[in-house]
């Protein structure tokens, strides 16, 4: 991505969260059809301040909604049918299940049923943070990816948070934009990109030859740290950032597995079904002959996300557990 970085620099470093705010600001500036609707996002600027100052800068276009996730999404669908480009902010991804019906049954089926596009962007502040607990920590990308008719994005970098959100708004299809809360303040970049890889393309975040880690969102950074740790022992781990869960860039994944012969899929979401299962299913069915060892995967534990940091830190995969899994994979 380095060569894509451009003069759009900030005096201080820009965070992942600020990139999301900047993308929304850009979208509001560029396109009069864009408006943002969500809980506490108006003058207050949102629970995470992802819309800070936007209501003031764009009067009437950044609207507080009632606590009504179903109606929030339903109204976005209606507005989109009439030519608008709504962005819906769910306060937490977890709450989007209240609006699930509208996302998966109304938005996702609209184009196929009627031939009319339904360009809505639903932002899901996803993933765990210390102290978040069972209802402020979930990763729901797999649920949404299960339904036809949706595009599911999971940016892992500041640059992708910006460029993919802008692309989400421009797409003619409903997009579930899974932004990771843990990355909001942890990730910083010097500037925002003017160009980026398109939606649907995975990125090789680190090249290697001994094994491939396929991951996305916050787990990318854990995987990169694990790869770094293993490099001290001479292992070269390739790390793929999927960027987009649906569509899933199977070609990039298979090409990497062809080079390394070993693969570990890592996701912060729960283990049953899900993105890592899908990745391994594709490798097993379409690239079985590329494998030198059984494919592995690593997910969170199959319990609700715990509140206490001691438990939470063990519930999800970390650099340590990923490194451990990789050593197993390399021994096989």
């Amino acid at each position: 991505m380095q060569d894509l970085l451009t003069p759009h620099t900030f005096p201080d470093l820009i965070t992942y969260l600020e990139a999301i705010r900047e993308a929304q600001k850009q979208a509001l500036e560029d396109d009069p059809r864009v408006y943002i609707y969500g809980q506490d996002i108006g003058n207050f600027g949102g629970a995470f301040k992802a819309t800070k100052n936007l209501a003031q800068s764009f009067p009437g276009r950044v609207l507080d909604s009632p606590i009504s996730e179903d109606a929030m999404v339903g109204s976005a669908i209606g507005a989109a049918l009439q030519g608008m480009r709504p962005i819906i902010e769910m306060q937490f991804a977890d709450f989007s299940t209240v609006g699930l019906n509208q996302i998966v049954n109304q938005a996702a089926t609209m184009f196929w049923r009627t031939g009319l596009p339904c360009p809505i962007t639903v932002r899901l502040p996803s993933g765990g943070t210390p102290g978040g607990g069972p209802f402020h920590s979930q990763n729901l990308e797999a649920i949404y990816a299960h339904y036809p008719g949706l595009v599911i994005l999971t940016p892992a970098t500041v640059e992708d948070a910006y460029s993919m959100l802008l692309e989400a708004v421009a797409l003619d299809d409903p997009v579930v934009f899974c932004e990771h809360k843990y990355l909001y303040y942890h990730l910083k970049a010097e500037s925002l990109p003017q160009e980026a890889l398109p939606v649907g393309k995975a990125r090789i975040a680190r090249t290697g030859r001994d094994a491939t880690v396929v991951t996305y969102s916050a787990m990318l950074h854990e995987a990169l740290a694990a790869a770094e740790e293993l490099s001290a022992d001479g292992w070269e781990i390739e790390v793929i950032d999927l960027r987009s869960i649906k569509p899933l860039d199977t070609d990039t994944v298979l090409a990497s597995v062809a080079r390394t012969g070993r693969v570990l899929a890592v996701g912060e979401a729960w283990p049953w079904g899900g993105v890592t299962a899908e990745v391994l299913a594709r490798i097993a069915t379409e690239g079985f002959n590329l494998l030198d060892a059984p494919p592995m995967r690593l997910n969170s534990k199959d319990t609700p996300v715990p509140f206490h940091p001691n438990l939470w830190g063990t519930h999800r995969p970390t650099a340590r557990t990923i490194a451990h899994a990789l050593r197993d994979l390399l021994r096989l």
């Binding site: 109204s75 209606g78 507005a79 049918l81 608008m84």
Partner: peptide, 14 residues
Amino acid sequence: VSVVNGMLLAHRFQ
């Protein structure tokens, strides 16, 4: 119903 709401909201925006 909320889809109708959204269409009416769009009319207001437009």
